[in-house]
Design a protein around this nucleic acid. Sequence first.
RNA 1: UCAGUCGGCCGGACGGCCGCUGCGGCACUCACCGAAAGGUGGCCGUGGAGGAAAGUCCGGGCUCCAUGGACAAACGGUGCCGGAUAACGUCCGGCGGGGUUGAUCCCCGCUUUCGCGGGGAGAGGCCCCAGGGAUAGUGCCACAGAGAACAGACCGCCUGCCCCGCUUCGGCGGGGCGGCAAGGGUGAAACGGUGCGGUAAGAGCGCACCGCGGGACCGGCAACGGAACCGGCACGGCAAACCCCACCGGGAGCAAGACCGAAUAGGGGCGGCGCGGGCUCCUCCUCGCGAAAGCAAGGAGAAGACCCGGAUCGGUCCAGAUCAGCCGCCCGGGUAGGUUGCUUGAGGCGCCGGGUAACCGGCGUCCCAGAGGAAUGGCCGUCACGCAUGGCUCUCGGGUCAUGCCCUACAGAACCCGGCUUACAGGCCGGCUGAUGUG
Length: 119
Amino acid sequence: MQRLRQRADFLKAATGSKAPAGPFVLQAIKRDEDGSPRIGLTVSKKVGTAVERNRVRRRLREIVKQSAAMMRPGYDYVLVGRRAALQEPFARMAAAFDAAVRRVHAAPAGRIAKPAARH
RNA sequence: UCAGUCGGCCGGACGGCCGCUGCGGCACUCACCGAAAGGUGGCCGUGGAGGAAAGUCCGGGCUCCAUGGACAAACGGUGCCGGAUAACGUCCGGCGGGGUUGAUCCCCGCUUUCGCGGGGAGAGGCCCCAGGGAUAGUGCCACAGAGAACAGACCGCCUGCCCCGCUUCGGCGGGGCGGCAAGGGUGAAACGGUGCGGUAAGAGCGCACCGCGGGACCGGCAACGGAACCGGCACGGCAAACCCCACCGGGAGCAAGACCGAAUAGGGGCGGCGCGGGCUCCUCCUCGCGAAAGCAAGGAGAAGACCCGGAUCGGUCCAGAUCAGCCGCCCGGGUAGGUUGCUUGAGGCGCCGGGUAACCGGCGUCCCAGAGGAAUGGCCGUCACGCAUGGCUCUCGGGUCAUGCCCUACAGAACCCGGCUUACAGGCCGGCUGAUGUG
């Protein structure tokens, strides 16, 4: 899984479709070519101290690893960590990520995808 | 054994599955991304957070910039002495001062004695000290109080002298001239403290003890300590107010710096094209001379080469300055981006030696994180530890079992070292002090 490293890639992904969940926000955008999917993680200082930010980053990265098959080639994904990712049970977070990937591809680019039938 | 305090150390262990990243080896010379520089991708082995990685408060290394050298000025910092160190505001050893506790000793009063009360000195323990200079100068010392830095007499005390009244002739009361600074009161601080003598009352006026100032000489590398003797006692505090003295300091920081290097814009050079003018070869027309070849004049068109060039500024000229179309190639600077700097270092460990110690020396041995939208992890099992609840037991301190929780406190390297400061669940070791128990 390739990672995003350039600031320009992150800014471009922010203009794509978005899927907010509790512990994170998923953004996705189609690239010009059909290479393997790329993923970037954003965990700002608002989330907490360096220790907490690192932990959020690691848990999100692990979820991405487990659900790598769902991601489509030619897409760039950016995962914005939220503070809830510190405490959320791992299995629930993984399920939320799978749902977010589906939502982000169902919605037209530029629109915010609503959570599907929240109950 | 427990408590307090000081110092040092550790800060979950083992295992399974799946990953990340540095290095080494082997494959691949292939695929992908990129204009390029360069990057990504396989398998095996191996390394992979801290005592504070934190705050960024000091000190260095390293890099670039500035600077002719030295000194001074300015600004900032440090400030007892000696040592350690690359250096420090750090560390070690020593000295001094203050606070608290206080063994012991001294003085005075009462007491037959035992002893009681008041005052003073003070070994030792613990804690604190921005601990140079107040005779270099300037400034400040509020309020209260009579008087506060060449200080004072409000209340008060005194019958020494004078006057008045009374008198039981002892004196008493009032006023004045004077004397005093002991007591009251104010204050952070009142021209040393306590006691005795002395006196009208008092006062270092005299004396004892204590304090204070000077001090030959002695000890110590020094800070400083001791001290014969002298002086009846003065010379206040604040430098964390300015200031003076001594010493130290150029600035910015790995986003330092070095190398590679697009697109676009801009810079320089070379070449070409285009525009205007001049001259001319040439072509055509008209006319003249000539027998002809040809010569000559005018007009029109016009290729190549050559020469000159425009605009603005300035009254004009010269000189000058600035600006100036299109295309191609080359060059240099440089942005994004990439690579590097990047981990072997005032390094860790062990032994020996020196030193009270901080620390230093010698020998041996080891290589111990190097990311970059930022690796060092995710999930799980067992055990240990902790907490909560419940059961059982019980010598009432605990022990044991089950379940649950946190799967752990503070906290995540960002160029590298030495310190300081701050945060920290729980645990281990040692020194000192005290209490208790046993022999």
